[in-house]
Design a protein around this nucleic acid. Sequence first.
DNA 1: ACCGTTCCGTACCGAGCGGTACAGTAATGT
DNA 2: ACATTACTGTACCGCTCGGTACGGAACGGT
Lengths: 204, 204
Amino acid sequence: MSTAPERGRPRGFDTAVALERAKEVFWKYGYEGASLTELTAAMGINKPSLYAAFGSKEELFKQAVQLYAEQDMAYARNALDQPTAYEVAAALLGDNVRALTREDTPPGCLSIQGGTACGADNAGISAFLAHSRLAGEAALAARFARARDERDLPAGTDPAGLARFVMIVAEGQAVHAAAGISREQLEQSTDLALRAFPQPGAEH
Amino acid sequence: MSTAPERGRPRGFDTAVALERAKEVFWKYGYEGASLTELTAAMGINKPSLYAAFGSKEELFKQAVQLYAEQDMAYARNALDQPTAYEVAAALLGDNVRALTREDTPPGCLSIQGGTACGADNAGISAFLAHSRLAGEAALAARFARARDERDLPAGTDPAGLARFVMIVAEGQAVHAAAGISREQLEQSTDLALRAFPQPGAEH
DNA sequence: ACCGTTCCGTACCGAGCGGTACAGTAATGT
DNA sequence: ACATTACTGTACCGCTCGGTACGGAACGGT
């Protein structure tokens, strides 16, 4: 893994660290609420450096969301590796609650806090976030479809509908977490949601 | 009910209609995404008229949210009148889905779309919305507490936890609705959520 | 008719927005 | 050594933001 031969003055900051800081600012304030002034202050750089390294506010945001997906939502992909559909859902919602209420990150979820609604000029931002959430839901639906084929879920189960329900609970937990609800109270909602989960033996 | 004797030039617009229009703009674009230009255009008035009638953008928003609660969320209060806790939850979530997917209003819910995250200057807006959502949750918890006392819910039930679960599902549905998910698909999630509901006979 | 009162429309305010021009500076290539 | 290249910091761009000053217009009271 060789670094490319660097010509010219080297960058005076670590883009990975700067992106990490930007992620936190977007997480707290949302896309529109995060001003360039606040972003550059948190990143420890000036505006031209930001634009040279990331292109624009929108591209910076999308890179921050990607980093968020890789780093702060790894639990969602890992949950798919659980042996049964029930355990997948339990791991997903359980880890979701833990991620939403960490003390070293803002409360809630960047995908929601980033902007469920934006101004007319930034409609693409909320659409981008919604699309990425639905991509995760599709992966969960595929996992549930496999479980149904493996007779781990009842034959009559709608995998997409079940995945949608789980994601709806996860999103509601994110909204609640952003409002300051405690981890213990959110865990209670996970337990309740899992009671709705179909058992392998049941008819539907 | 006598109207006060009006002195001076009469107002050239209907404040109720103007507030209705403002509500829709906030609903679509959120608090920060709704500019005064867009608001006044939709309301059919000029900025000084807006400020004379409503005080400020923030006060206009709060009045819009209040109108929303009275008008677009009346179903939430009505649901509390159902005879059993299960029917309360079923009515609440069922009507919630219908309200989120009406064709004559923006998709989703003003309380979420208004702004789950805002810039540092407008932190009060998201706090205001979160507080009003939790007030509704408290009313639902009180209804469930009554149901438990009436042996309509198992004695071991935590009314606040159950209310939190129902509200979490409702919020998740709102996020999903804003992303364009269909009414039918959301109704499916209501059915699943209700399967988690404790039955009167059960232990907990 | 005239006055006080209230509202409307234009034109404007300071501030902050996202984004950039430009000159200075620190590295490499030859 | 010196040209080339790329990054940094300052200072600035046009624009839009939320909010308002002010003069004209439409009403009731007397």
